[in-house]
Simulated assay, not measured.
Amino acid sequence: MSKMTVEVVTPERVIFSGEANLVIARGVQGELGIMPNHMPLVTPLKIAPVRIKTEGGKEVVMAVSGGFMEVRGDKVTILAETAETPEDIDVARAKSAKERAEKRLSEKHPDLDVRRAERALQRALTRLQISTK
């Protein structure tokens, strides 16, 4: 089976670098499945899990908070604002962040930055989703 090189990079560090058979990410237009020899593309990413299928059917899952994915030849590069593996996630902190964001959104203060609260909620939900993997 053919492979491609995949790198997931944040401003702080390289989260993943290796060979893969499939990358599944959520772009602004919807879910994307990238396999070796995919057509070139660059797309912004949403706050969502990214799944990387490696040799032997293993899967690497991480919570990605925005950024971009570039596909060129047999290389996929994800430049993420943040990316966390399940081991990196503090579940209690993510639950607390979820509750704070839901509370902010339900109170509807006139000076509330709704977009910021919605992004915080989505980040917390994504972290909680992959922490159970």
Rank of each mutant, 00 (worst) to 15 (best):
S131W: 03
E118D: 00
K58W: 01
S17V: 02
I52L: 09
E19K: 09
V28P: 03
E87C: 02
Q29W: 07
R115Y: 11
R127S: 05
P40Y: 03
L121G: 02
K108I: 09
I130H: 04
G66C: 13
P44C: 08
L45D: 07
R119Q: 13
H38I: 04
T82H: 09
V61K: 09
N21H: 15
L105Y: 01
I15A: 15
R72A: 15
M1T: 10
R51K: 15
L105R: 08
E118S: 05
G73Q: 08
R115F: 10
N21T: 11
S2K: 14
S65A: 15
A25K: 05
L45N: 08
V6Y: 00
A124Y: 01
L125T: 00
K108S: 09
E59F: 02
E99A: 13
E118A: 09
L22I: 03
K103G: 07
V8S: 00
K98R: 14
S106V: 08
Q29I: 09
G57R: 03
G27H: 01
E81I: 13
E118G: 00
E87K: 12
S106H: 04
S96K: 15
L105G: 06
E70M: 09
I34P: 03
V61Y: 01
E107P: 03
I78N: 04
L128F: 01
A63H: 00
M39I: 13
L41I: 14
F68S: 08
F16T: 00
T10G: 05
M62W: 07
A94N: 10
N37Q: 12
S2A: 15
A124G: 03
H38C: 04
V50Q: 06
L79W: 00
S2M: 13
S131Q: 05
Q129N: 10
S96W: 10
V64C: 09
A101N: 02
R72L: 15
R93Q: 11
K3T: 14
G67M: 13
R115M: 11
E84W: 03
R13Y: 00
T43Q: 08
E70A: 12
I24D: 01
S2P: 14
S65K: 12
V64H: 05
S106K: 12
Q122G: 01
P49E: 15
E70S: 12
G18I: 04
I78Q: 03
P110Y: 11
E12F: 03
I78F: 00
K58N: 14
V23D: 00
T43K: 02
A94C: 10
A48I: 00
V14I: 15
R51Y: 12
I24E: 10
I130N: 05
L45F: 06
Q29T: 12
R93A: 15
R100D: 09
L128R: 07
V8T: 03
T85R: 15
I52A: 08
V91E: 12
G66D: 12
R104P: 04
K3S: 12
N21A: 13
A25T: 06
R13E: 08
H38A: 04
T82F: 10
V14G: 01
R93V: 02
L32S: 02
V76E: 01
D113Q: 04
V91M: 11
E81L: 11
I34T: 03
P110F: 11
K98E: 14
K75P: 01
S17D: 13
G18S: 08
